[in-house]
Nucleic acid binder design. Structure first.
Lengths: 149, 149
DNA sequence: TGCAAATATATGTACATACATTTAATATCC
DNA sequence: GGATATTAAATGTATGTACATATATTTGCA
């Protein structure tokens, strides 16, 4: 659906403003699609992102600092998200032996198993970007890169 | 900067996954740019969005329902955002005379004056979408519309 | 008329975000 | 070696988000 109809607003001032609003709106739409998906597995999107980073490190540990660096949203509070994952026993946390200020965080076996199930489910799930032809997807990435220049 | 470098991740599985991650990342980046901007004026982004809707209605009142319909993020809690705006005396709220279940919300003179200052400041501010040529901005909108089909 | 359903908003709870501050451990410099 | 600065993580507070529930008002129909 065109963005004008989607948000029931009169015309935009120009193509830039329209693209801007469309970008915020669409990313939000995508995030809602996904959070509904993750909820089936008892996870939130940030929790999933952290689990995925931990799998990338596995079997090496990650510190909170490393999580913050790698997270898509750099300003969020990794420490408290790890709290929730630890409560679900999807990760382990223990003081780093070589630097007792830092904390070694590792994905647990239960966490790895959960991600396996998620991978399978995600392959079945068709998120919106699948509506684009491969060339269109590449072009979208290129336009987005330009915005952040 | 290319998205691969931005999030320090190895190659993506395909153009679709890359576009997807890029979309979430970029919209987040934009929102952070903006929320820093609005903070100078003592507002958050959702508060600004609601003020803008109220200005669009002015001098007619809006109800909470109307705000929810018009807001970009439809699931957020308009009632409590109006609480904050009311505390700053940027809006007024009173029971609708013709339907005492509903509440008439209006932007105050102080709210209108704040938006005038914001408009001026936003014209000076160059958000990322300005990096795109007009045709590119139009194409971005068209790609985003396709994703939500 | 009176009672149930629908509507408009507000409130409660859990979680996430943004940002400042605190606590503890380590590094640095004199 | 000891005071000070730096670093890593956790915590506090205010705000926003998501979703369920509560409260009040109006509507509609038996």
């Amino acid at each position: 659906m065109k963005i004008e109809d989607e948000i029931k607003q009169a015309a935009f001032r120009n193509d830039h403003q329209k693209a801007h609003v469309n970008l915020i709106f669409t990313a939000n739409w995508l995030q809602q699609q996904q959070s509904g998906f993750f909820k089936q597995f008892g996870l939130t999107l940030p929790q999933f992102n952290i689990l995925r980073i931990l799998r990338g490190q596995h079997p090496k540990p990650a510190t909170v600092n490393l999580l913050i660096e790698r997270m898509l949203d750099k300003t969020s509070n990794a420490s408290r998200i790890v709290d929730k994952l630890e409560a679900k026993e999807l990760v382990t946390r223990c003081v780093c032996p070589s630097n007792r200020r830092a904390v070694d965080i590792r994905i647990s076996d239960a966490g790895l198993e959960l991600l396996v199930r998620l991978d399978a489910a995600m392959d079945d799930q068709r998120f919106g970007v699948q509506n684009l032809a491969p060339a269109e997807a590449a072009q979208l990435s290129s336009l987005l890169d330009k915005i952040r220049d």
